[in-house]
């Protein structure tokens, strides 16, 4: 099962997908804010959004799982 992880520590600004959405590899799925900069996080492989683990406003650490994808 694929996971989308935070590329750096920051605050979740926007979740761009919903549960059940089909996403493509390279698609922006979440926007983090770190050090006053918006940092988009992409899915690195295609899949269906199984679970969104975070919500807007939450603080996440580098490497934390943001979204679970299924084939």
């Amino acid at each position: 099962m694929a996971q989308v992880k935070a590329s750096m520590a920051g605050t979740v600004l926007t979740v761009l997908v919903s549960q059940g959405d089909q996403v493509e590899a390279g698609q922006d799925v979440i926007i983090l804010e770190s050090m006053k900069m918006e940092v988009p996080v992409q899915a690195d492989q295609p899949g269906r959004v199984k679970e969104i683990k975070v919500e807007a406003g939450a603080f996440v650490n580098d490497g934390e799982v943001l979204i679970e994808l299924e084939e």
């Binding site: 750096m8 520590a9 920051g10 770190s34 050090m35 900069m37 940092v39 580098d62």
Partner: peptide, 13 residues
């Protein structure tokens, strides 16, 4: 700045 010198992406830690 605490950031990547090429991409300008933040680098906290």
């Amino acid at each position: 700045y605490a950031e990547d010198p090429v991409t300008f992406m933040p680098s906290p830690g």
